Simulated assay, not measured.
Amino acid sequence: MVLLAPAEAHAAAPPLAGAPGDTITLPVRDALAALPVRAEDTSPYSRDAFKHWVDADGDGCNARAEVLKSEAVVAPEQGPRCTLSGGEWYSEYDDTYVQGPRGLDIDHRVPLGEAWESGAFAWTATEREEYANDLGDPRSLIAVTAASNRAKGKKDPAEWQPPYAGNSCGYHTDWVAVKTRWGQSVDPVEKRVLAEELANCPDVPITVTMAR
């Protein structure tokens, strides 16, 4: 694990470098400062470029079901072919409890379209599949109401904020963590908004295991 002292990390704010599997820990504002700043890529994007949902471990439950099972506040019943019923979930974007899985979407914290524009256009198909089904960091995929997920779409924090103000600091902190994990860039407006939002939040340390 690489541990950066806050003063050292903030002073230089170098781009973070590490091999997949390396773990870094640093304050979230320094992590934001270290993200590369680039204009968003405008090449054609399709969700089909990110294969999901897959059953990577072959246990019969795909990534969507795995997230639902892990995040349930009341466990659902699991039937044949990992069909889930019952259960209860908390949607942090809108401070809402949801009964049963049908009203939920699995949100990519950094949406697939945003990921594409922030570097994934140049990734391999395997890397994009791994990103779309990332169970290696609980901040990457979360269960939220379908309404909030679809309102968010592919928007970044400059374009969309969680309707529940109490989720603001967690949302922006986790956004930076996911972008750090996957080596994604931020565009100038996105970075400015993230910096403004995080200035009102605790400068908590984030620990990230690099995915690429």
Rank of each mutant, 00 (worst) to 15 (best):
P101K: 10
T25Q: 15
A65H: 11
D30R: 02
V204P: 06
I24S: 13
F50L: 06
L68I: 11
S85K: 08
P80C: 06
W182A: 10
G79E: 11
A5G: 11
P6F: 05
T124K: 05
E117S: 14
V2R: 11
H52A: 03
A115N: 03
K155Y: 09
A33F: 05
K152Q: 04
G119K: 15
K155E: 04
E159T: 10
P188Y: 09
K152C: 00
S91V: 06
W53M: 08
T42H: 11
K191L: 07
G136M: 05
R64D: 09
D55M: 12
A33Y: 05
A19Q: 15
C61T: 04
H10P: 06
D105P: 13
R128Q: 06
P111A: 15
D57E: 10
H172D: 01
A31Y: 03
E196M: 13
P27N: 08
G166R: 00
A143R: 00
T124M: 02
T42W: 09
E114L: 09
T180N: 09
A12M: 12
D48A: 13
V144Q: 14
K154R: 13
P36K: 14
S43V: 08
D187N: 10
E92Y: 13
P80V: 09
R38W: 00
V189I: 15
P20Q: 12
W89V: 02
F50T: 01
A115M: 01
A195I: 07
T96E: 07
E196F: 14
G153L: 10
A39G: 06
G153I: 10
S148Q: 05
G113V: 07
V178Q: 04
I206E: 01
G166C: 07
G100H: 00
T180S: 05
D134R: 04
G153V: 14
A12V: 08
D203A: 09
E8I: 12
V110C: 15
N62L: 04
W116G: 04
E130H: 13
L3N: 15
A125S: 15
K191C: 02
A132E: 03
P20W: 14
W116K: 06
G183N: 14
T126Q: 15
E8W: 13
A115S: 10
E71P: 04
Y45A: 08
G79K: 14
A120I: 06
D95G: 15
A146Y: 01
P101A: 12
I24T: 12
A165M: 06
R47K: 14
D134K: 00
A199V: 01
G119S: 11
T124A: 05
R29A: 12
A65Q: 14
Y45N: 06
D55A: 08
G21E: 07
A195Y: 02
S43E: 09
A177K: 15
T96D: 10
N62I: 06
A75C: 09
S46F: 04
A165T: 11
Y164I: 03
